[in-house]
Design a protein around this nucleic acid. Structure first.
Length: 589
RNA sequence: GGAGUCUUAGCUCAAUUGGUUAGAGCGCCGCCCUGUCACGGCGGAGGUUGCGGGUUCGAGCCCCGUAGACUCCGCCA
């Protein structure tokens, strides 16, 4: 038996007169008492089927009983639609299939939610995800995701990469995110960890001489969820030997050209602009700047070098900075919104948020009375202050001011109600990240990227002195419209440098041997210089799909609390299962 | 762990200042309807206003608690 001869998006004028068989879901039924129309839907599209009682009484009678989402098989002749009844909204709108046979393959119950409109209740969608995914928008997202991954594979394959799988049951590492653990039945008391990334394995593949590796890799991190964060997510994980960062930039830019050509049919411009981490923080207050809004943070410390205004004076005298952001056109801000911004500023460590509203030709501000005429003139000039502007100030330690004004900048875009062109693509490489960050909590240095990241050659010497924190890494992130969609680095490939790095991070010799001995040993047997990158595929597809959440581009995502609502995972397991694994729960019942 | 927003019919939402029997559209059920494509017409069913407590003559609305969802902070090498 042939289930169908065509998909529901296939038939056109040229098929008129042919007898065809279609199979799919009843999208809608329009029953006129006599003639009945059914929009038959499958993955590819919709075809109108007509049931005519005067031609096929029994078939039309059966069609009266059809309901939304019944699965049916229909045979009949393709006919030109009657003059004036063509539907321009359908690709198949010039024709219809006049049914002479109808087979109901599976009746459907009444649906818990309509498939043809936006549903706000995400719970309900996730609990019936198989229905949600039938909706054309979601199906398009799945198709888009497939096309993107296929393109990534094709580009890498053409460039000589090998796709290599690495273990899912792997080893827990001390740094980074919380691990998901899997108890080992055969090794009582021992645990595998699900990989946060295939990092060490891919470096070991370089030591193995693979030279060009990639993997569409599932990664696991047991941290709290967000709209753009799931506990399991997918990376295009890439590693290459004998390369510099430039080689990796060129490869990834080539890949994005191919991806956007495939997904949107557009030609994106390369090379992408680059910003150093320092520049990104200074100008945008973020290590993943959204440059679609062009207003930048400006240093006004020079203007206020001689100020008597004690807030600015104090910041400058303590070695801090005074910087400002002109939120163009935001003078209309309400008092409540100013308060909200101030609260936000305080949350990020500022003591307050000074501002100037330029309205009705005057500067309304609690602080301008402390400014001299010269300072005001310089400020107006430097920030291009015009009627309708709102200027926001940060005066504090450098890091605090960057962070605060960066957050304020993002919120200002929201408050201004700016709607960016959906086709706008601001790609950006952020380079020269710091290698290390001091953790006040743990009183130790942590790797900003990861412990395998190579220090910049000219900064290696800094590791020994008291300027450890100033050392920069051969690390880079790729940012699209303010979203970090990938990151990587050139790695350390020498055992002694890697060991030194571990030492700085507080991993002693014994721990190094037990946790990273395999890597250090591999480096001693002729590991080539290497580096790589990982792209967050969920986020990339989210941006390509114009979705607000990566949940919309993952077939079966988890909700905010890590629960997959359809199957109900995670779930309590039987005591016997735990016993076999030598596990006991400490959760009080 | 913290902050915010939300929760009213199967779905999307409304309900004036706290005031009569909580409404509408879609969906569903029944009947009618021979060219619709958001088909149309008539009729009908459908509600513990998330849950618990409080204030009040009276609570969907105010207060307290609690649960859940979402967004954000912390966290995410």
């Amino acid at each position: 038996m042939i289930f169908r001869t065509h998909h529901c998006a296939a038939l056109r004028d040229k098929d008129i007169g042919n007898r065809v068989t279609l199979a799919g879901w009843v999208g809608s039924r329009r029953d006129h008492g006599g003639v009945i129309f059914v929009d038959l839907r499958d993955r590819e599209g919709v075809t109108q089927v007509v049931f005519r009682p005067e031609e096929q009484a029994a078939v039309a009678e059966a069609a009266h009983g059809l309901r939304d989402e019944d699965v049916i098989q229909v045979s009949g002749k393709v006919a030109k639609r009657l003059e004036g009844t063509e539907n321009a909204k359908l690709s198949t709108g010039a024709i219809e299939v006049v049914a002479d046979e109808l087979k109901i393959l599976n009746k459907a119950d009444v649906l818990p939610f309509p498939l043809d409109e936006q549903i706000a209740n995400e719970d309900l969608r996730l609990a019936h995800r198989y229905l949600d995914l039938r909706r054309p928008g979601m199906a398009q997202n799945l198709r888009l995701r497939h096309r993107v991954i296929k393109t990534v594979r094709d580009v890498l394959d053409a460039d000589g990469f090998w796709e290599v799988e690495t273990p899912i049951l792997s080893k827990s590492t001390p740094e980074g995110a919380r691990d998901f653990l899997v108890p080992s039945r055969l090794n009582p008391g021992a645990f595998y960890a699900l990989p946060q990334a295939p990092q060490q394995y891919k470096q070991l593949l370089m030591a193995a001489g693979v030279e060009k590796y990639f993997q569409i890799a599932r990664c696991f991190r047991d941290e709290d969820l967000r709209a753009d964060r799931q506990p399991e997510f997918t990376q295009a994980d890439i590693e290459m030997s004998f390369v510099t960062a430039e080689d990796i930039f060129a490869l990834i830019e080539k890949m994005f050209v191919a991806v956007f050509r495939e997904a949107w049919g557009v030609e994106i411009k390369t090379p992408f602009p680059r910003l150093t981490y320092r520049e990104a923080m200074d100008r945008f207050g973020s290590d993943k700047p959204d440059t679609r809004w062009t207003q930048e943070i400006v240093d006004v410390g020079g203007i206020f070098a001689g100020t008597e205004f004690k807030v600015f004076r104090g910041a400058l005298d303590n070695g801090g900075v005074v910087r400002a952001l002109n939120a163009k056109g935001l003078a209309k801000i309400t008092t409540g919104q100013i308060e909200e911004l101030t609260e936000m500023a305080k949350q990020y460590g500022a003591k307050g948020l000074a501002f100037i509203k330029c309205e009705n030709g005057e500067w309304k501000s609690p602080i301008v009375k402390f400014f001299t005429d010269a300072e005001k003139a310089a400020l107006k000039d430097r920030l291009n202050i015009e009627e309708g502007d709102l200027v926001l100030f940060g005066a504090d330690k450098l890091d605090t001011v960057c962070e605060v004004l960066g957050r304020v900048r993002l919120r200002a875009v929201e408050l201004l109600g700016i709607k960016h062109d959906p086709q706008r693509l601001d790609f950006l490489w952020v380079v020269d990240f710091p290698l290390l960050a001091w953790s006040e909590e743990e009183k130790k240095w942590n790797a900003v990227h990861h412990p395998f990241t190579r220090p910049k050659a000219e900064d290696v010497a800094l590791l020994d002195g008291d300027k450890t924190g100033e050392a920069r890494a051969e690390a880079y992130d790729i940012v699209l419209n303010g979203v970090e969609i990938g990151g990587g680095s050139i790695r350390i490939h020498e055992a002694d440098l890697q060991s030194k790095m571990f030492g700085i991070l507080g991993v002693d010799d014994e721990q190094q041997a037990s946790m990273f001995g395999h890597l250090l040993k591999a480096f001693k047997f002729g590991a080539p210089p290497h580096g790589g990158i990982a792209l967050g595929l969920d986020r990339l597809v989210m941006l390509l799909a114009h979705a607000d959440s990566i949940r919309d581009v993952i077939a079966f995502p988890k909700n905010n609390r890590g629960v997959e609502l359809m199957t109900g995972s995670p779930s309590v397991v039987d005591f016997k299962q735990l016993r076999e694994l030598y596990i006991a729960s400490t959760k009080k019942a």
